[in-house]
Structures are given as C-alpha cells and as structure tokens.
C-alpha cells in the first residue's frame, strides 16, 4: 500500500515510477488558486520524496529515509486538474547512511518538473 494512485515500477536501490492523478475535487484548489486551479509545486516535490522512498534501498526496522536536501528543482509547466503525473525517481548514489536521486515528473510524456539532486538520509526512529 502506498500513497500513490498507481505504482508502475519499483526496484529498491535503483528506481521507482508512480502515478499521481490530479482530480478537480482536491480541496487544495479552493485556495490554490481561486481563479486558477494548479497543483502546488511543493506537493509535487512531496510526491517525488515519497517515490524516492520507494526507490531507496531497504532499511532495517527502526530506521527510515528522511529528506535532507534538494538541489535544482525546476517547475517547467503547471500541473492542472485532469493531469496524470508520472513520477520517475532514479538512484544516483547510495551509501549506508544517505541516498541521492534524480527525478522527473511527466504529463503525457512531457516533463513538467525535474530535480537534479535529492538526498535522503537514514534516521533512527523509536522502535
């Protein structure tokens, strides 16, 4: 079970591809924006982080991957109601304590958001 509407591909330690549908019913559109409904860019970044967790190497129970840094995040086109976002995340480098990814989000084959570098770090959580 994931927060995505569809998961197309997951290879832990390598990559993940997931889908987020953008229906006009999302409550966020009431305020973002009243006259121009678009998906907030930070929520797309949030989905990229979720997809990165799917692509990250498995961690032992009691720890998890948390977002530490993102570099060169670019929003090229708006995501609007009716769009189906395909979120692709690829591992660039993985160590014991941190994983670096690149990511692209496409709608109908066109990139609307890209991230040059996203780093997740391993953090211990109370068991």
């Amino acid at each position: 079970m994931t927060a995505f509407d569809e998961v197309l591909d997951v290879v832990p330690g390598k990559r993940a591809v997931a889908v987020r549908n953008v229906p006009g019913t999302l409550t966020v559109f009431a305020t973002h924006f009243p006259r121009f409904p678009v998906m907030p860019g930070v929520l797309i970044l949030d989905d990229i982080v979720r997809a990165a967790r799917l692509a990250a190497p498995d961690v032992p129970k009691g720890s998890r991957w948390v977002p530490a840094e993102a570099r060169r995040v670019r929003y090229r086109h708006f995501a609007e109601p009716g769009d189906r976002l395909e979120i692709s995340v690829t591992v660039i480098e993985a160590t014991e304590s941190a994983v670096t990814f690149k990511a692209a989000v496409g709608v109908d084959g066109r990139d609307i958001t890209t991230v040059r570098q996203l780093r997740l770090e391993k953090r211990e959580v109370a068991a």
Binding site: V38, V42, A68, E69, R72
Partner: peptide, 11 residues
C-alpha cells in the same frame, strides 16, 4: 508569485 525553481533547499 508562482514557483519556477529552487536552487537548493535543506531540511
């Protein structure tokens, strides 16, 4: 304003 890009963000 509408967001276009972020060079870097750290948490």
């Amino acid at each position: 304003a509408a967001l276009l890009s972020v060079d870097g963000v750290s948490f």
